[in-house]
Nucleic acid binder design. Sequence first.
DNA 1: CCTCGTCGATACAACGTTGTAAAGCGGCCG
DNA 2: CGGCCGCTTTACAACGTTGTATCGACGAGG
Lengths: 333, 333
Amino acid sequence: MATLKDVAALAGVSVKTVSNVVNGYAFVKPENRRRVEEALTATGYRPNIGARNLRRGRTGFLALVLPELVVPYFAELAGLVLGAAQEQEWNVLIEQTLGTREGERDTLASLGPHMIDGAIVSPEALEARDFGELAPGIPVVMLGEHSVDLPIDHVGIDNVEAARVAVAHLVGLGRTRIAAIGAHPHRGTAAQRLEGYRKALGDAGLPVRDDLVATALNYHRRDGAEAMARLLAADEPPDAVFCFNDLLAVGAVRAAAERGVRVPADLAVVGFDNTEEGTYSLPTLTTVAPDKAAIARAAVDLLRRRVDDPGRPPEHVRTPFSLEVRESTRGGA
Amino acid sequence: MATLKDVAALAGVSVKTVSNVVNGYAFVKPENRRRVEEALTATGYRPNIGARNLRRGRTGFLALVLPELVVPYFAELAGLVLGAAQEQEWNVLIEQTLGTREGERDTLASLGPHMIDGAIVSPEALEARDFGELAPGIPVVMLGEHSVDLPIDHVGIDNVEAARVAVAHLVGLGRTRIAAIGAHPHRGTAAQRLEGYRKALGDAGLPVRDDLVATALNYHRRDGAEAMARLLAADEPPDAVFCFNDLLAVGAVRAAAERGVRVPADLAVVGFDNTEEGTYSLPTLTTVAPDKAAIARAAVDLLRRRVDDPGRPPEHVRTPFSLEVRESTRGGA
DNA sequence: CCTCGTCGATACAACGTTGTAAAGCGGCCG
DNA sequence: CGGCCGCTTTACAACGTTGTATCGACGAGG
């Protein structure tokens, strides 16, 4: 409630002198500094961030644009971004797009150039190239999809290689009818994981059969269950499945169980994201584990550098990943 | 980038007239309105929310203070609050306290009175009465803990009754050694759920045995697993367990499975929160289902009314809940 | 004809902050 | 002694917006 004016009046100095003390300006007479500091604590002064940012031309806000918080991967990531942003004195505005292209467009448009210093975007429906026109002048860091051709900063793992490693692991178990769940017409990461899947099969000399690749328009548990049900209904059902995220995998495990298919004995399952849910499920999930903390940190750092120097060339940061082998691919045959 | 001034220059009218058009003021000559609207689209004008709020004395921001986004209940709730706030033209600032008392204090203090119009707080470590001193003048709505004696708006379900219903359900299955996981020294909701647990046992004429009540200092899967392990190690292990949230229940199911205890045959499990994870787990979880959408809506509405009229008497809103019976308590004996 | 009320537009100030310019006051050097 | 430089403080403007006061025009009513 107290403003600089109030503090200045109490201390008997000008508004600007108080501002100088607050901002740590060096040349203030000790006597005055003391009186100002007293007045500061006496009034319980807190700067009005909005006014400060208006004057400075910064907002102090960063938008984190993601499909849905109920997806554990995004919830975990959001938590980590919150932490990383705090270190940079950024507040985070989380926006859910619900996976629709319109949602992503509206979000970026409504935030406007004034509300935020920049955005970290995890695109789903939106195609990457749309961003140039949608967010003119807003510094954007993209997560996940790797699109080298675009002049936009980007953070993510090597999806092709991660998928290849995951499927190679299934191959190593001796499985031969390895399915994939999560193909998607517009999702860049889906295409890359599919490519890794095909590469691993090729490396092993296994045929790539289209009827073993299941599409999932969303990446929720329900979609995984439905896709798995379709796959299991085939004449020659798969003996392993690579799911493009852990939620799909959880759904797949559920669908298998309901049909009496044992995991991993009859069906080995690999997920993606290493969500905590997969470390307590029955069975626990083998999964590709991206370093989420590294992703969050890199994204915030990249955005900071972009804001400070809008002219710098776009950067593509590769974060590490590992394969966590758990019960869903252990034992059986 | 374009400001009212730019638009005004282009349309050949005053800044205020443009402002009037933007804000839907009625008395603008059609001719001028047309020209302004043209200039508006031509320049792609977007209001500077910060400046507007500075002038209006409001920030347009609402803080949602919660322990952790990785807890699915909070992630789901956050998503719903985001939606409800959007309808009121509020932006949401999500703050994680990580469950520490300091985190909750720092958060509220650092946001300051200027940053936000109000806060929706889901307290964990913080005792409710602290809020008066911490957030002087900030409208606060509390979630979860029901503390009628405090002059603070509050939204939540009847925890005592919800717990009673859950445990009564276990009693109805014929279970007699019914344990509870989630007792906590400082958490109000924990005390209430424990009370409901005791009441249900009393109603059924069953003894309340302290060795069947397990404390959980956090409400994560790990804590549930550890508590269940302790309970199962007893001479007379329980044949049912009521967990104070779904994560604890998931951990409990896992711990049971690792010891060869079958759910629900040997051990019936009830959770709390109705997170989606529990609808796909093996087995699916019987759980108390609070109406999260209603909670989110009520909280935002309550905050709106509080902001508009700071003097009104505090209100306590009871939101409905139901018991979702699933596999973890079905069949067996 | 004068007044009054409605409509339409404008100038100005203000929200709280900080950058800029400038002024006052010494002291130091030429 | 005059001028210059460094310290310290201040007044002022500006960020972009909107509330208030004001002003002019116009039509209706006395």
